[in-house]
Amino acid sequence: MRLPGAISFVIASLCLAGCSSTSGMDALDIQKPSNETTSSVVRPSAPITSVPVSKASNTRKLAEAPPQDAPDRPFGLAEEETVALSVPELPDNVDPPIEPAALVSPPKLLSRAAPAMLAGPVTRYGFRDAKPINFGRASPRHLAVHGVDVSRWQGDVNWDKLRAQGANFAYIKATDGGDHLDPMFMRNWRNADAAGLKRGAYHFFYWCRTAGEQADWFIRNVPKVDGALPPVIDVEWNGDSSCKRRPSREKVLEKMQVFMDKLERHYGQRPIIYTAPDFYRDNLQGAFLDYPFWLRAVARHPSKVYPGRKWLFWQYSGSGLSHGVTGRIDLNVFHGDERQWRAWAGGGGRQMMADAD
């Protein structure tokens, strides 16, 4: 039975419109998970709060796919004992030296107003730990200034509660590779500051993209803000990544230098290097002596895992518990006392050096 010409025309038009709409959404590629997975990606223990996506960012992939066997932490190894390093033991009756802070070059001021933007009084440690480690006399609790690092997998963070429990600073996942933005970054960036924490952003380095591309992507997405902590480059090996490339030590150092130089020129602050034991062993021993380091050491003191290396931050737990998040959170500590923290975080004062510990 033939339909009247007008009705046939309407039906055909609707079909064409439907096809066009579908192909347009496919082009946006919003729902597809990224092929680039990093060890910054973990399976959340609770549903993630959805974040509105602005029209300008709809053409970007905003989320990486969590690997099936992802660890319950943003990044790094679980046990440093797997790394064979020759390390002198600390006598039980000797405390590891903790002063002064191990920073070769303090962050430069972006403006003279930065010191006034310091967080309030230091909040003392009040976290719990699902897998507590007895560090003995080398316990991070002997240090004054504790903080956290977060990514989308902590969900909707209650920053006021996190601050009250002992988080004085937060490093927030911003980017990885050359086209991946953590969808919770801007919300965490704003809310951490509103709660009175000193905040900084970190980038997970992807070995299958050029360093320049990655630096440009980070700069595009992380605001240049007075009073922010220096940016962090997170460098490590990750077996779950779609990128299986492991460049030579020479190439690793070259790529890192390109990335860090670009960030330093843009933000006016020397980047901090975050790393884990196996990557450090393969690439970083004896390198970048004039850069501050943030070291993961969740089973032993950094002096035993990274002998001879000066450090600014110590990530001492990947299993922290707080009223401000559902599930676990990484715990970190600043290498210095409260006075040194204020001097460093404010960007002023003299340069600080420390003996390696």
Rank of each mutant, 00 (worst) to 15 (best):
S139M: 08
H180P: 00
G120D: 13
K198I: 00
T123D: 00
G166L: 00
A164E: 01
N191T: 00
D160Y: 01
P121M: 09
S151Q: 14
L143A: 15
G177P: 03
L143M: 14
D193K: 10
Y171T: 08
V122N: 04
D193W: 04
L118D: 04
G166Y: 08
R137D: 12
L162G: 04
F127V: 11
R163Q: 04
D176I: 10
P115G: 13
K173F: 15
M186I: 03
G178P: 03
D129G: 03
P115M: 14
F185R: 06
L118M: 01
P183R: 06
R187L: 15
G200W: 12
R128M: 07
A144C: 12
A116L: 11
L143V: 11
A170G: 00
P140I: 14
S139E: 11
T123I: 09
L162C: 03
G178H: 10
D193R: 11
T123Q: 07
A167S: 07
V150G: 05
I133A: 07
V148M: 10
F185C: 02
F127R: 01
K173T: 09
D179Q: 06
H146G: 01
G136H: 11
A130P: 02
V148Q: 09
R199Y: 12
A170I: 12
N134F: 14
V145F: 13
I133F: 08
D160K: 00
M184N: 05
N191S: 01
G177T: 08
M117I: 04
G178Q: 00
A119I: 03
D182E: 12
A167H: 04
P115Q: 12
V150I: 15
Y125E: 01
A170P: 04
P121Q: 08
M186D: 12
